Computed example of a mutant assay.
Amino acid sequence: MKATQQRTLAVNGITLSVHVAGPEHGRPIWLLHGFPECWYSWRAQIAPLVAAGYQVWMPEMRGYGASSAPQAVEAYDLLTLCADIQGAMDLLGQRQVCVVGHDWGAPVAWHLALLEPERVQAVVALSVPYAGRPKQPAIELIRAHFKDRFNYILYFQNPGVAEAELDADVAHTLRMFMQGGANGDLILKDKPASATLFDGINQPDRLPPWCSAEAFEVYVQTFAGRGFHGALNWYRNFERNWQRTEPLAEACVEQPALFLLGDLDPVGVLEAHTLLRMPKRVPRLEQHIVKACGHWIQSEQPDIVNGHLLRFLASHFPV
């Protein structure tokens, strides 16, 4: 991995920690991580992008690592998360960028493309598709569908409940997500609504092959001492997100877009309908299914992801 420099930016009323690598005047690419990850989840992408001439910006998103983690739930709505990145781009004087997002970083990337049609020249999303603003908040659909069964998003809704389980042992929590999150056990397992997240999930006895002990320690330090409250607040804004994005209800992502999904990623099951509708809202879409790959796609299959990413950039955001 290429050496990175950590910078602290005062933007949008918070402190945003950003790790940067690459030539000073390289075209900027923003890599936005998801839950429960960190900037280091992009470690396998840094060197290839820098070698291609890009400057790579990897924030610790609001609620993570050395960035601010406001207590209030409403401080984590989607447009506020976008404003953090927009403020950083403004501060850095960046007029043309490419934005890449994985997991929760993907909705931020999609909406940055909608909000910044001139500045965001190309967008890449991993795992989470986009098919426009739903007709009602997604949380309402989830509540109706999972009346008597466990659903991780519903479990995350009440502040303090999920925190008690996840914060008890940060390293254990991350191991459970890395293993169970990749193949769907955590989010697809059928169990009573009264269950906790880790009920019925076998505890892994080792790290997955794509995560070294050194990398795992970076993940652990992201949450050590602060827990998962800020990160979980992202899940508690579905209604607020729906309300605040009303002006974007009819908007399409007009930029060139690349979407990658692992064939074993449980999101493919949960978002099957969204995947079918995505081309109507993202007309310049290129999409690929990555074989033998779960949810942590850029870490599990970095060579394949990097190949798709570099080819896409060469066509739509060349150095």
Rank of each mutant, 00 (worst) to 15 (best):
Q5Y: 15
Q6C: 14
T8S: 01
N12Q: 08
G13F: 15
T15F: 04
A21D: 04
E24S: 11
H25S: 15
L32W: 00
H33P: 12
H33A: 13
S41K: 06
V50A: 03
A51H: 08
A51N: 14
M58T: 07
E60G: 04
M61G: 05
M61L: 15
R62T: 07
G65T: 13
A66W: 10
P70R: 06
E74S: 09
L78V: 09
L79R: 00
I85G: 07
R95I: 00
V97W: 00
G101F: 01
A106C: 05
P107R: 06
V108Q: 06
W110C: 03
W110Q: 03
L112F: 02
E116M: 11
E116S: 05
P117W: 07
P117R: 11
Q121R: 15
Q121T: 11
A122N: 07
L126T: 06
P129K: 03
G132K: 02
Q136K: 15
P137S: 09
I142Q: 13
F146D: 12
N151E: 09
I153S: 06
F156Q: 05
G160I: 01
A164Y: 04
A164V: 05
D167W: 03
H172S: 13
Q179H: 14
Q179F: 08
G180R: 02
N183I: 15
A193R: 10
A193T: 04
F198D: 12
N202G: 11
P208Y: 00
C211G: 06
E214A: 05
V218G: 13
Y219Q: 10
V220S: 08
F223V: 13
R226K: 14
F228K: 05
H229T: 06
N233R: 02
N233M: 08
F238Q: 04
F238K: 02
A251K: 14
A257D: 08
F259C: 03
L264G: 05
D265P: 04
D265R: 03
P266M: 12
V269F: 12
L270Q: 10
E271V: 09
A272E: 15
K280L: 08
R281Q: 09
R284Y: 01
L285R: 02
H288A: 15
W296A: 10
S299E: 09
V305C: 12
N306C: 03
G307N: 07
G307A: 09
L309Q: 01
